[in-house]
């Protein structure tokens, strides 16, 4: 398949050019829900990375056996299995964190990033390409999630990772750690990214 991107392209595209959150606007439910602190955000990113890598590799391995009308069933089955694994591991080894994340770990099953990557990449390309795609997209997701979490945690509590970074005189903007803060931050960061993009393209056009 000559028109498919190479593994390296897949990897790089996932991080910024095709960032799952800022560019494709996928998987926004966990982005909005668990980005009120850096710690849950990182745990969430790791869980998503595990599921994405597992599902992409497995789907890529069996891609020649897939029947077009049954592929979605198989994607969902695979994703659900890996999510349940991640959920059980978190509950067994980081119990408090798994309680904080609550229903959002099981909800990775319906996270459209993963089903999108299975459909776009893993069901068409080799294992190597699928794996590098999964890693690239996971890094992109982690980047987006933690950038929002950093802004919200610092402005909302004056702390980062539980350590104080702003002076105690900072009036905590409680709204930032509440749901509206998630929408505000996501919107503003999206705006910034789009602004940088249009600035760049304007510059390249004028030169």
């Amino acid at each position: 398949m000559a028109d498919q991107p190479t593994p390296l392209e897949r990897f790089i595209q996932g991080i910024l050019p095709e960032n799952p959150v800022y560019r494709q606007l996928l998987g926004l439910c966990p982005v909005l829900a668990v980005s009120n602190g850096l710690k849950p955000a990182i745990t969430m990113s790791v869980a998503v990375a595990f599921v994405l890598l597992g599902a992409n590799v497995l789907i890529s391995l069996i891609r020649n056996l897939l029947k077009p009308h049954l592929r979605i069933v198989i994607f969902t089955l695979t994703i659900a299995t890996f999510v349940t694994l991640a959920d059980r591991f978190l509950a067994a080894y980081v119990y408090q964190m798994s309680k904080t994340l609550g229903p959002y770990i099981p909800l990775i099953i319906v996270n459209c990033i993963i089903i999108c990557r299975c459909e776009v990449c893993a069901s068409k390309q080799s294992v190597f390409a699928a794996a590098s795609d999964a890693i690239g997209q996971s890094l992109g997701f982690a980047l987006a999630l933690s950038s929002i979490a950093v802004v919200r945690e610092i402005l909302g509590t004056g702390m980062l990772f539980g350590l104080r970074v702003l002076p105690t005189a900072w009036p905590d903007w409680v709204i930032m750690i509440l749901p509206p803060g998630a929408f505000l931050t996501l919107g503003l960061l999206l705006g910034v990214i789009n602004w940088i993009d249009s600035y760049k393209s304007k510059k390249s056009r004028s030169s």
Partner: peptide, 29 residues
């Protein structure tokens, strides 16, 4: 549908194994 059935069986078995090993740990937590 054989692939769906085979995968479901394999996944079910592996999840059961994980539950058998991790279930007691989670209960202890």
């Amino acid at each position: 549908a054989w692939l769906v059935l085979v995968l479901a069986l394999c996944f079910g078995a592996s999840l059961a194994a994980v539950q058998l090993t991790l279930g007691p740990v989670i209960e202890q937590n």
